[in-house]
Design a protein around this nucleic acid. Structure first.
Lengths: 118, 118
DNA sequence: CTAACATTTCTATAATTCACGAAATATAGG
DNA sequence: CCTATATTTCGTGAATTATAGAAATGTTAG
């Protein structure tokens, strides 16, 4: 009855949309890019900006409100972090959340041959 | 652009509803119960019946169409199996699906201190 | 064959979600 | 302060989903 520590259902719901799953996988793969400004400056960041995420996922140059909405849902589920870096918002995965999801699926898995569970 | 894996988003969507997550967790925990008939007969089964799942999740004695619908969605997502056993339908988790979900969250997880990913 | 039972499918309705454009907010720079 | 840029919030309509009751399906027992 009682909800487990993190709201697992909320996380799964957030990952249950293909656009959001794309975003999440992109952020997991692209964990620490370096942004290159138009003038050639290299800006060390902890993750891609919201606009870069949008560009990668939709191919569009401009960020749109739909991606912003999806990022918000991922953030509210605790799966990603979004914080301001100057004019941009940079994203990153919440590794603690990923770890708790991993442990959710790793636990038990009783061997079908040697049923220890009952 | 290409879908990440075999219907991961579909699995997550299925688990993204709290009722279905309850069902799924129940089936994982209760992997090989033995059903006792009214007459005292013990019937070895590979999992609880749909009615037993419904009873556990909703408290209702009778199965209702809502639970049936949720079970169908879990089944179509590949997360559980449902097969007829006499008059009943018995459920079980699809351990292969659980394993692929586990590996999805286990992969990479690069250490934040030693960034090897770029 | 008929009755009883377990479960699914059908149908309808309420609620939620997705996507999009317009407007609002926040920040940096001149 | 004013403008440009990046992003979010708001409002709306279309699409999907959840829920519940009624009817249908398949199975066993008599």
């Amino acid at each position: 009855m009682a909800e487990p520590s993190p709201d697992l259902a909320l996380m799964f719901k957030a990952l249950g949309d293909s656009t959001r799953l794309h975003i999440f996988e992109f952020l997991r793969a692209c964990c620490c890019p370096v942004a290159v400004e138009e003038n050639g400056d290299v800006r060390p960041v902890s993750g891609p900006t919201v606009g870069e995420v949008c560009c990668h996922v939709t191919g569009a140059e401009q960020i749109n409100s739909t991606i912003s909405h999806h990022l918000k849902e991922l953030r509210l589920a605790g799966l990603i972090t979004v914080e301001r870096r100057g004019k941009n918002m940079v994203c990153g995965v919440n590794r603690q959340a990923v770890a708790s999801l991993a442990s959710f699926f790793n636990k038990d898995i009783p061997d079908e041959k040697s049923n220890k569970c009952c």
